[in-house]
């Protein structure tokens, strides 16, 4: 049985101009501990698909199964990291933010703070445990968000362009850190991005999506050893291959 099964998922929007297809018959499966990137131009429905997997949107047809269980609404088997830094609760310290999910689960204060601190160590922010989010940089806030999404140990981590709003240098640093966090935790991850280099750096496999209607065009496995060197010939080769898939469909439009 596949760990994650996205099975023929479609979503139609009702707009004043009529029904618009957001996602059209998207399908892919995932093994446990796999890192999957969904790449595509804006408007291809990749974020919409992620929101369906997260349970924030209900698909018009098709279904998503996590460990064989059909997804109906959001649940604690999934952790989510958004693009917007504002996702953290400003009235809670970094530690209290990370502990939120455990608090909802009813874990006692001492125990949840211990786990939260371990999660902050994982993203190298244990020194800032008592800081409020507005005292942290954008990159640090996203690291807290990653720790927060991992703290209650979900089966699946969903990430919606978490580093897209960061400057290029911080983004590279974040990607290295995320690759390290993933190596240590071995979470199953679905990571949405429009950045091809980012996908090649992080993913075991890349799902390429195309717009009008948003559907899965192809899948590209990335079989490079980790940690990856973005300047190696193989790396650039994979990047080119993905670019070709994306430009082919751009030429068609």
């Amino acid at each position: 049985m596949l760990h994650i099964d996205v099975d023929n998922v479609s979503l139609l929007y009702d707009t004043p101009a009529g029904r618009v297809s957001g996602v059209h018959e998207a399908s892919f499966g995932m093994e446990e501990s796999e890192f999957l990137c969904i790449v595509g131009p804006s408007g291809c429905g990749k974020s919409t698909l992620l929101n369906i997997i997260a349970g924030f949107l209900a698909p018009t047809s098709g279904e998503i199964r996590i460990g064989g269980k059909v997804v109906t609404g959001h649940g604690m088997d999934r952790g989510i990291v958004f693009q917007d830094f504002a996702q953290l609760f400003p009235w809670r310290t970094a530690l209290e933010n990370v502990a939120f999910g455990l608090e909802m689960k009813g874990v006692a204060k001492a125990a949840r703070e211990e786990i939260a601190l371990k999660q902050l160590q994982l993203v190298k922010l244990e020194k800032f445990a008592r800081s409020y989010p507005h005292h942290l940089s954008g990159g640090m806030q996203q690291r807290v968000a990653i720790a927060r999404a991992l703290a209650y140990d979900p089966a699946l981590l969903l990430m919606d362009e978490p580093f897209a709003a960061l400057d290029a240098m911080t983004r590279d640093e974040m990607q290295r850190l995320l690759a390290e966090v993933w190596r240590e935790t071995r979470k199953t991850v679905i990571y949405v991005t429009h950045n091809v280099a980012e996908a090649v750096y992080l993913a075991d496999r890349v799902v390429v999506m195309t717009p009008h209607p948003g559907t899965v065009k192809t899948e590209v496995p990335i079989r490079l050893s980790r940690p990856r060197d973005p300047l190696s010939v193989e790396f650039l080769e994979h990047q080119k291959q993905l670019m070709r898939h994306l430009s082919e469909q751009a030429a068609k439009v």
Binding site: R78, I80, Q87, K105
Partner: peptide, 25 residues
């Protein structure tokens, strides 16, 4: 709304959403 989404994804509902997100927010 992002706080509501994040909190919902982390299992907050009804009472906890009200006291721990809406009121401080």
């Amino acid at each position: 709304p992002l706080w509501m989404r994040a909190a919902g994804a982390m299992g907050a509902n009804g009472q906890s959403l009200f006291w721990k997100v809406i009121i401080p927010g």
